[in-house]
Nucleic acid binder design. Structure first.
Lengths: 335, 335
DNA sequence: AATAGTTTTGCAAATGTTTTCATTTTTCGA
DNA sequence: TCGAAAAATGAAAACATTTGCAAAACTATT
């Protein structure tokens, strides 16, 4: 038994295919009694509409492409979730792919999504291959950049200001009187989020007349384990910092657990701060001082914006800044 | 300038549309020099193939539907990531949606994915609406169940044995000599994963002649905060347990931080165990005793299996059990 | 240079819908 | 009961591809 198509339904309901189509798309144009017959036939045959066939009429595909570096980091999981939720509520479905921090793969994946004729695209961060921008522009598909806000971004960007976030936390630590400060960041190369945070932080410190010793600028993989290892080593050196600034909460937790392991107490012996305010950061003990990057809000707002620009392509979309917020909790203390 | 279609390319390359199509799909059938002309035209016009148009010829859409309860829990993020990675490697793209633990929404979302003519579907867990099974069966779309293994599952299931996982951790705690045991679980209703774990745990305890006081069976939302709150209250009661068994690692971390807050030491004063082995659980201090549910492996294997059954629909797919593993770390100790 | 075979290409039909336009049916006021 | 207007329906073209088949263009062999 082949899959039922609209013609099979039409036959079963003794009407024409046009009428069946209409009864789906403009129900008000078909008589109630006819609609009933059609519905019955649809149910009887288990007919499911074929969006592919609709799509080739220039009708929207109802999909939005989302390409992220990775999903299984707390940061992006929250973003993906809120974005997808909001997008679903607006009647679209997400086509998802992850590129593992390779802008080349990002380009390839974007292309693939365009083959599927997504109605819109969302990418993460501000830095993308020139090819990718060209592609999106040339295919004339609405696209937005999520996560980071950039005034001069090539596409509308909805997100937070990572420079600001870094600056906030740097200034906070400086204001507590710390002078011997270490940093733990993921590799900055090709990661605009982390770079901006780092710059913001460095600048804030500089403004307070402070600087980080270059051998105290740690760079680690994005994981509790890696940060823990790195900080563990740092803290067994001949001199130790009194504060550690981390590029994100996961690294901060690594740092905290490294100090815990060495029998130190946070924040009495050492202050630690993160960026991100991931799930749990508020509730773990001691509660982490960090800067909130409102992932859920970014996802939701991003979804609204992209859908808007799909529905009304001519209304020109603005970038939106979603402010980061300093959250002083229990892992930082005056020196 | 309208988007280029295959005919525009054909004109530009001075060949017929058929030849262009062939040069994509069966390059060996077209002369090298013609292919070169076509490639040039494609590049010049920025042509991107339209999969929707291919799909209505019964050609595969190259998409696989994945419907999960939620993405932003550590558990599923890892699964989604590994599944999507593997699926991409095999040349497919994921259509993702989350249903927020509503089987009704799951049905609706599955339908929607079938409208998009996904080549295969993956759902999470063993419990699904009868309608959903009927739909999948009737539309004759390959489908698998991820996360849980069930011998008698209605569709092939690739996953771990949650009953076993619960049993392992229950037996471990019993073997340490604990008698006053509490549990913290998410709501079991409509959540087969949690229910099976719970049953396994209860059974293991019973086998050791133990039982949990009904007022020590805590049920909380899935979050560190909720578990922390609940356990905080429990521990300030007139009598306290010497061990707390948690339905997953997030709840376990909540429990641990609740006890920390009260000035207790884990595992000296109280043992805590989780299930899941989420990111970080190994590295936080003290390292969490838990049962590993190998999410990455499930995702990868699941992807392979569903793709296999798309490519060779007649080869009948077997369920696969991916064993959970007890990881005794530093949060449990003899009573 | 002619033939047979092989390779390459184009034509036309097919895929499952939607939509425009024309036709048929219904409704309603006189 | 008629006619005009409104409502409902159907026929056919359109959408962007693929594919079976036949024609055309080459190659190799004599």
């Amino acid at each position: 038994m082949k899959k039922a198509d609209i013609i099979a339904v039409a036959k079963a309901a003794k009407v024409s295919a046009s009428t069946v189509s209409r009864s789906f798309n403009h129900p008000e144009l078909v008589k109630a009694s006819t609609r009933k017959k059609i519905d019955a036939a649809v149910r009887r045959l288990g007919y499911i509409r074929n969006r592919a066939a609709q799509t080739i009429h220039g009708i929207r595909s109802g999909t939005i492409g989302l390409v992220v570096p990775t999903i299984d980091h707390a940061i992006f999981a929250e973003l993906v979730q809120s974005f997808s939720e909001a997008v679903e509520d607006l009647g679209f479905t997400i086509l998802l792919a992850s590129h593992g921090y390779s802008l080349e793969r990002e380009y390839a994946l974007t292309r693939k999504m365009l083959e599927h004729r997504v109605d819109g695209m969302a990418l993460i961060g501000l830095a993308h291959a020139e090819d990718t921008y060209a592609l999106l522009d040339q295919q004339d598909v609405p696209a937005i950049l999520l996560w980071n806000y950039g005034q001069t971004s090539q596409l509308p960007s909805i997100g937070s200001d990572n420079y600001r976030a870094g600056h906030l936390i740097g200034a906070h630590i400086a204001s507590l009187g710390h002078r011997d400060i270490a940093s733990v960041f993921p590799p900055l190369e090709g990661n605009d989020r982390a770079s901006h945070r780092f710059e913001g932080m460095i600048t804030a410190l500089k403004e307070a007349g402070l600087a980080i010793r270059s051998d105290w600028m740690l760079e680690t993989r994005y994981s509790v384990a890696a940060a823990k290892e790195a900080v563990g080593q740092l803290m067994t050196g001949s001199t130790q910092p009194s504060a550690i600034l981390c590029g994100n909460d996961v690294l901060a937790w690594g740092a905290i657990h490294a100090t815990l392991r060495l029998g130190l107490t946070v924040p009495r012996d050492i202050s630690v701060a993160g960026i991100g305010d991931f799930k749990g950061s508020k509730d773990f003990e001691p509660a982490l001082t960090t800067v909130r990057i409102p992932a859920r809000q970014i996802g939701k707002r991003g979804a609204e914006v992209i859908v808007q620009s799909i529905i009304a392509p001519d209304e020109g979309v603005q970038s939106e800044l979603i402010h980061p917020e300093l959250l002083i909790r229990a892992t930082t203390a005056p020196r």
